[in-house]
Design a protein around this nucleic acid. Structure first.
Lengths: 362, 362
DNA sequence: AATTAGCACTGTAATCATGTGAGTGCTAAT
DNA sequence: ATTAGCACTCACATGATTACAGTGCTAATT
């Protein structure tokens, strides 16, 4: 009221910050007396009370009930996070463990992501999330064919740096030569195309080129389509869900159930997350923070999501995130997510082995 | 006391069964009066009480506290399950959905397993588990090499019906010819061998054979080792963990936390489970049931685990299981697991597609 | 001898009354 | 502008009282 509408006086900032710090520590509403005593605020409790009342009016604080202390509102947290300048620095131990863990020879992006996620969860004691983005517009750069036995060929697709394989089974025995010819045709006609560009005319043209082996074209193209459309549907994983249960804010069974259900609806989640972060992925290398209602998913609206995408050679190859109560140790988590993603990027760059690797198990 | 030690009189059986049925339905301790009225037992409550007292002495029932009804002990459940003859039959709806769901073009064992698991969880409303066994003794049948660019080769390994790929990066540019030569050497020397058989002498021999390209041998062999040791480390997945929260027996936060933690220690879990079921996998095609303390993991000792392995051409390719409170709808779950695994086996057999194949026909 | 009716007994859970204490808002004093 | 002081509010803990479901046992009944 004496202050400008949006500008907080230094004293208000001090008090607000102290309140949030305190609340992050113990999770309980904090009162004026406590602040004065424990947090060394050089004013009397009455003064602090007045300030608190104003901060509440301004929307930075909330009061669970009349005779309780104040807790930060989402807006309060947002202010706090935005004003975080003195970022937490990881301890030597943490750094060491991080390096150690990530160093253990791991080459596939998937695996690295996974262990980074586990590490993140362990070190922060919140739930961690690893997201592998849905890859759009898959173009096959090159095809190879390998004859596995009489009737089955293995189609090998080179997509950027990653390799996908697919078995093709034919009723009729297939010669070595057919495979070679098919590879030639594929490389000539089917490279650099999206699934939509596989048109009927193209198919027929290819069949013509295959001569007596034309019967191979249809199943092969089908296989290709399946592969490139399902390719890297994106993945999302969680680790340390149980850790959330350490925090009283997740003690509500109903809520908890919903949250768990959410975590299991990976597809939906992935879609929502990708859509939203699709924008931000291209943004820049900052750690992103969603507090409470800012979250994309309503169920998470009293949680905070902190994450950052990982790029390799400019393209996003994944993201690591942390989910926890809005009352979260922001400094630590932000620092952690930041270092972790940087660490992963480094490893990727260093080994300079690119994403993907074998598509894995069949 | 009038009865033979281990043989239950018909009346006792009747009562025990009724008690368990009732308890499964509503989860609460059941009393004598309730049995008489609701479950149509043709004796007075007093008689039933006497029988119940004896059943408790014999270990089939337990009493939470003096003035409560009885609940079945693990031994009680075991008796119940063993005596289940009239197995539940799935409803038409359930069968339909099951078929529908499994039919949707899915070819890889992984994917099928996964959707079977999800289905299982949905239909039973318990937590479902899918387990892919750790594959022992991986032998590479054949190697191919593909030149991706100047400095990187892709090593293609054929292991049975499945294909694995691995990028090999060299500092020095590699010619097409080097790749071909390497493939020859590998196929000659490194097929059908376990990682332990890759000895130093063998390595040196191969290097000799490679002549000027000997520098490739070490990294490639390393790559192979990595692949075949990490290959199919086995996997375990869960679905519908949140469903457990519907049951009051999981309302204890501490316990719940432990359980969730357990579910996330997939490696340990997999090991324990594989060891134990390794025995049983070779056993036979029965649904297996672990009640309470019988469980391999102490934390699960008031839950029941019901599962069955899935084979294809004789070898176990996975398992589907259900985890729930000991008070579980055994009939339904057993039937469900049974049908589901059978369904999956059929699909596998039918396509007769070995793991990881596109479906050969339309 | 087996069954049942009847009753005293027991332990849980729900309800209510009460007291306690932390924390506030406001007014008056500094 | 700050602070001391005080009345007020509300959640929470405590304890007492009651209601109730279910048992075990004894005595009556078949």
């Amino acid at each position: 009221m004496h202050e400008d509408n949006n500008i907080l006086s230094e004293r208000k900032k001090l008090i607000l910050k102290a309140i949030i710090d305190a609340h992050i520590e113990n999770g309980e509403p904090v009162g004026s007396k406590f602040l004065m005593q424990t947090k060394q605020i050089a004013y009397s409790s009455a003064t602090i009370r007045n300030e608190m009342a104003e901060l509440e009016d301004m929307g930075y604080l909330e009061q669970p009930h009349t005779s309780a202390g104040r807790i930060p509102s989402e807006m309060g947290y947002r202010f706090y996070v935005n004003s975080l300048v003195d970022r937490y620095n990881l301890t030597q131990n943490e750094i060491a463990e991080l390096k150690q863990m990530l160093k253990v020879k791991q080459v596939e992006v998937d695996t690295i992501l996974q262990s980074a996620m586990q590490l993140a969860s362990r070190l922060t004691n919140y739930t961690a999330m690893a997201l592998k983005p849905r890859q759009m517009r898959i173009l096959v750069d090159r095809y190879e064919l390998m004859r596995l036995d009489e009737c089955t060929l293995v189609l090998i697709m080179v997509i950027g740096q990653t390799i996908k394989t697919k078995h093709i089974r034919s009723q009729i025995p297939v010669t070595q030569e057919a495979g070679i010819r098919l590879a030639v045709v594929l490389n000539e006609k089917a490279t650099g195309k999206t699934a939509e560009e596989f048109t009927m005319p193209l198919l027929m043209e290819m069949e013509a080129m295959m001569g007596e082996y034309e019967f191979l074209v249809a199943p092969v193209m089908k296989g290709i389509c399946e592969t490139i459309t399902s390719f890297d549907g994106g993945e999302i994983r969680f680790d340390g869900i149980n850790r959330l249960l350490s925090y009283p804010e997740y003690y509500d069974m109903e809520r908890l159930k919903e949250l768990l259900a959410l975590f299991e609806r990976k597809d939906d989640l992935l879609r929502i997350l990708s859509e939203e972060t699709g924008v931000n992925m291209s943004a820049d290398e900052k750690v992103q923070i969603y507090i409470g209602r800012e979250n994309l998913v309503k169920i998470m609206d009293n949680s905070t999501l902190i994450f950052k995408t990982i790029r390799h050679q400019g393209i996003p190859v994944g993201a690591i995130g942390i989910i926890g109560p809005t009352r979260m140790d922001y400094k630590r988590v932000i620092a952690m997510v930041d270092s972790l993603t940087k660490g992963v990027s480094n490893i990727l760059a260093e080994g300079d082995i690119t994403p993907g690797l074998p598509d894995g198990n069949k």
